[in-house]
């Protein structure tokens, strides 16, 4: 646990945050190994922004702790190596692009001006343009330059692509992936769109109603589930397959499909298939009482175990 690369990039233990309206995030525990690209998925108001704000040190937790690379979220070490891009990507509209990058240079000891300038230049944005006169996509690019110029070990992005057209979205995603790969950064990206993240992310945290429902390596999570289907007449059997955890059953076009977590050998007549990421997420979002699944790689405070 002494090598920074071995420490989890992000580890939440019993993390909770309460607002006047009630709990936005409750008893949230998971760990994100370093070097992963993590999708933080959940419906609107699920607590994604609260979780990211806690990790970014903008909020203080009501309960529990969150540590980044082994350091408490609000410590100087954690701040120095973490970049955060808020949903609104708020920059000062009257600042020139060069002034905006200077914010990064003045306030971060790890600042890398060439990285930031390269990202801005790749979007053909003049350095002396005022941020307020830029288009939405250009502004996002400047915000990315400010975040990536810090060369963070952990990059927290809150709905980074929400207001971008598909072309710019693709550009930003490519930029992000190449920068993250180049510096071995860990990325956490929140979204309520699954399609946006599929293919880019290898780690997943599903959060709903302020609690973590799924957390773990994407392949591991998918591998832990099967879809089985049968004619509606046999639906009752699917709902309680012996020894399995049934997440959800749905009936469409005369057949009932169930998403299950196999705990042992399945009956031979059901031809189980692996679910897609989207199927997996939607099934869990539709069924609020499905038991949460935190895989061993994502379990907080534990070392790697073999069992799922």
């Amino acid at each position: 646990m002494t090598d920074p690369a071995e420490r989890p990039a992000l580890e939440a233990v019993g993390l909770g945050r309460r607002y006047r309206r009630g709990w936005a995030l409750r008893d949230c525990s998971f760990r994100l190994p370093a070097g992963r690209i993590c999708a933080l998925v959940g419906p609107n108001g699920a607590g994604k922004t609260t979780l990211l704000s806690l990790a970014a040190g903008l909020l203080e937790p009501s309960t529990g702790t969150v540590r980044l690379g082994g350091h408490p979220a609000r410590s100087a070490e954690a701040r120095q190596h973490t970049a955060f891009l808020s949903q609104e990507k708020a920059l000062y509209p009257r600042f020139r692009v060069s002034d905006t990058l200077r914010i990064g240079r003045e306030l971060n000891p790890t600042w890398h001006q060439e990285t930031a300038e390269r990202i801005v230049a790749a979007g053909n944005i003049p350095m002396d343009a005022r941020v307020g006169t830029l288009s939405g996509g250009q502004r996002t690019r400047v915000a990315f330059a400010l975040a990536l110029g810090k060369r963070p070990r952990l990059l927290l992005l809150d709905e980074p692509m929400a207001d971008l057209d598909p072309l710019v979205r693709r550009q930003m995603m490519d930029l992000l992936m190449s920068e993250a790969a180049q510096h071995g950064s860990t990325v956490v990206m929140s979204s309520h769109l699954v399609s946006e993240l599929e293919g880019a992310c290898d780690f997943l945290v599903l959060i709903d109603n302020g609690t973590v429902r799924l957390a773990g390596d994407v392949a591991e999570l998918i591998g832990a589930h099967r879809t089985v289907s049968a004619p509606d007449a046999q639906a009752a059997r699917l709902a309680k397959l012996p020894g399995q955890v049934t997440v959800e059953t749905r009936s469409t076009g005369g057949r009932t499909t169930a998403l299950i977590r196999p705990r042992g050998p399945l009956p031979a007549d059901h031809t189980p298939a692996l679910p897609s990421l989207e199927e997996l997420l939607l099934a869990h979002l539709r069924t609020a009482d499905a038991p949460p699944l935190i895989t061993s790689t994502a379990r907080a405070g534990t070392h790697r175990e073999v069992t799922v």
Partner: peptide, 15 residues
């Protein structure tokens, strides 16, 4: 109001 404090306070400086 504009949320710019989030940009500044997530650089390497405390609130």
């Amino acid at each position: 109001e504009s949320g710019t404090y989030r940009t500044v306070c997530t650089q390497s400086v405390t609130q």
